[in-house]
Amino acid sequence: MHSQPETTALLGAVAAFLREVCVPALTGREAFLAKVAANCVDIAVREARDGPAATAAETTILQSLLASPETSLEALRATLCKEITAGVRDETDPALLEALLSIVAARVRIEQPGYASLERAPRA
């Protein structure tokens, strides 16, 4: 049984309040910070909505790249970091670049969906 309204709806109301009430009522630096605050709430909304799927996808991608049955994302990342620092894998490996681009682009779509470089990244 979920409480109502949903968490993302609560956050959406906060973002709207910041943008529609606070920003017009403030000036200069305070108005700028209110916009920044609204953007932070937007990130939290996208994190709640898309974060779990992005984490699951990252786990699957790293399992496949490393040919590992490991289920801890932390452990998978640590293994890949070690292989890169040891020189086992480098930027000439297309599979590595493709995997990391896919993982990182998903993070940027949550954290900064308007970031221009996303146009050059593989589609979600």
């Binding site: 990130i43 670049l97 990391l100 940027v108 954290e111 900064q112």
Partner: peptide
Amino acid sequence: RRASETELDVLL
């Protein structure tokens, strides 16, 4: 939260 934008640019 902007660290990920730089990761994307490095990879690209």
